[in-house]
Computed example of a mutant assay.
Amino acid sequence: MSVSGDFNHFPDDPEFADIIQRAEQAIESGVFPERISQGSSGSYFVKDPKGKIIGVFKPKSEEPYGHLNPKWTKYFHKLCCPCCFGRGCLLPNQGYLSEAAASLVDTKLGLGVVPKTKVVYLASETFHYNAIDRAKSRGKKYALEKVPKVGRRFHRVGLPPKVGSFQLFVEGYREADYWLRRFEAEPLPENVRKQLQAQFERLVVLDYVIRNTDRGNDNWLIKYEKPGEGEEGQKWPENSLDSCIKIAAIDNGLAFPFKHPDEWRAYPFHWAWLPQAKVAFSQETRDLVLSRLSDMNFVQDLCEDLYEMFKTDKGFDKTMFERQMSVMRGQVLNLTQALKDGKSPIQLVQMPRVVVERSRSGGQGRVVTLGNAFTQTFHCKRPFFSSW
């Protein structure tokens, strides 16, 4: 069943729109999304009409604690152990928005480590629906087949579309843990090591800004083509300036908290224990992001873009969203200072936690360092969230 005419519009990204259209065409022709066995939620490999995987779809209703999560263990967890339920610093059932928002931040900062991700609507027989929706779908199909004139009066025939995040599938990548172990046994050439370090720093910038609470070495990927061993016989010159090693930051659904995690359950960045985290941020990384992050008007534009995205959720709450942005602005402030001071990623994560609260009066902001009484007021050239 195609829903592009009703929901999926990407006029500014025709390439992505074409991919979604191919996904819908595949479903219409019986090439259905395939549920991914790993993980604690209902997520799906989406294919094109030829059966090739082109994306990963994560429906909102099938998130770990969603009401239609097909993996019952999380529902049982919520029912029987509510005191240990979920991440207390995150808004529930907004993982799909977090996935798309991470891609937005990645694009605005020019990092290029998050596979393109947007909010889409899809329907498929292989998704998890309740009995009522499936019964309605069968009834509509029967009416269309038996009484075409009546059946055509139905606004839509088939199962209702689900809203969720759609992330483009990346090929040739493996879990970071696999390659990191290989690199310990087989050290990289110096030029490739620098490429890995540069990519790693982009991952750090992303995770720190969005305050990812779920980054282990199993949910970011590395693609490595050894010098002289490109795809399909392509040769990499030993002194090539092109990158033969790339990172993909996937699984960004547990980010954008509305408060910093509690000390007893801090959700650390697991990359902080890697050797790469002990190296000071490179000039390349500073040149890429520092001028943007130092500009409060750029940060404000980013917050407003995120606002336009998050407000589409039925459970959107402006107050909670502003708390999310206060945390993010605090992360940006810390990162900016760390880049200016020539610190390393491990030194970055050891900095005091801060939030930047906006003032109701307009162009003022207040920096609050958690754990002490320090506050600082700064000014922005235009009011915070002037579009509200």
Rank of each mutant, 00 (worst) to 15 (best):
Q283C: 11
D287V: 04
M320R: 03
N239Y: 06
R382V: 08
R353D: 00
L339P: 08
K140E: 07
S103Y: 02
T73Y: 09
E99D: 13
N239V: 07
L333F: 14
H379W: 15
K162G: 06
T375M: 10
S98N: 10
I19A: 02
P275D: 09
K226A: 15
E201I: 06
S387V: 11
V355F: 08
F378E: 14
H9I: 07
K194Q: 15
Q167K: 00
D341Y: 05
E62K: 14
G5H: 02
D6R: 15
F169M: 08
R358N: 14
G66Y: 03
A135M: 14
A280H: 03
G139M: 14
S387I: 07
Q199D: 06
D262P: 08
S282Q: 10
S29V: 03
A23T: 00
F316L: 01
Q276P: 10
E263N: 13
G253R: 01
F298V: 03
I27Q: 00
I222P: 05
A26M: 03
V367R: 11
G39T: 09
V31T: 15
Y65K: 04
T126W: 04
G42R: 07
D12P: 04
L335H: 06
A280M: 04
A123F: 05
S386R: 11
E308V: 06
D207Q: 13
A176Q: 06
L254F: 12
G371H: 09
G110T: 06
D305W: 11
G51P: 04
L109V: 04
L221H: 00
S2Y: 03
F385S: 12
Q364P: 02
P345W: 09
K74P: 00
P352G: 12
F378A: 12
G330H: 01
